Simulated scan of single mutants.
Amino acid sequence: MEVHECVSFILVRNNTVLLETRTKEKVSDPGAIAIPGGHMEMGETQHETLYRELEEELNIKPTSFVYLCSLYHPTSELQLIHYYIVKNWLGTIDSLEAESVDWYSILNAPVATQADRIALSEYERLKCQTIFNSNY
């Protein structure tokens, strides 16, 4: 089975996370509440995908981010999602591709997929470590 690599971004503000409600027309996880992200293009690095997808989906540019983890997500295709924590960015968030984007408590985030739940749990588990508390 072919693996499709993706990059997802966990935008954090205080104790909240930005999640998208996917449009019902999406092939993967239609209508689901999810951590935003997108597919890597041929020859693109994870960081290049992160910058491109943040601009395409939310109209922002990250100023600090750190890699969190990579998880498989079986949907209409097998995805390997590389999750990044984005704590600072330039621009005003605007939902350009999703039905909507909203801030939710990290502890009670209503994400629809197991991979997103695990990623948010991993963020909570590691957030007390220096790497997540420094200016990255």
Rank of each mutant, 00 (worst) to 15 (best):
I81C: 02
T75D: 15
N14V: 03
S121K: 14
L54S: 05
P74R: 10
K87Q: 07
D29T: 03
N59T: 08
S100M: 02
H39P: 01
V3W: 02
M1I: 04
L71F: 04
L19K: 07
A109E: 06
S95N: 04
E99L: 15
Y136T: 03
V17A: 00
T130K: 12
S28W: 04
T45E: 13
L126S: 07
L19Q: 08
N108S: 15
S8P: 01
E25L: 04
L19W: 02
L71C: 10
W103V: 13
L96G: 05
C6V: 05
F132Y: 11
I93D: 10
N15Y: 06
S64T: 11
Q79M: 06
S121A: 13
L11G: 07
A32S: 15
Y136Q: 00
A119V: 04
L71Y: 06
Q129Y: 08
G37R: 02
A34D: 08
K87D: 12
F132N: 10
E124T: 02
Y72E: 12
M42N: 12
K61R: 09
E53Y: 01
E53M: 04
T21Y: 00
L54A: 08
H47N: 14
P74N: 12
K127V: 04
E25R: 10
A98G: 11
L50M: 14
A32W: 08
Y83K: 08
Q79I: 05
L68I: 06
E44P: 12
Y83S: 08
I35C: 01
V66C: 06
V111Q: 11
V27R: 10
L11I: 14
A112T: 12
L68M: 02
R52V: 09
M42K: 12
S121D: 14
L71Q: 07
P74C: 08
R52Y: 03
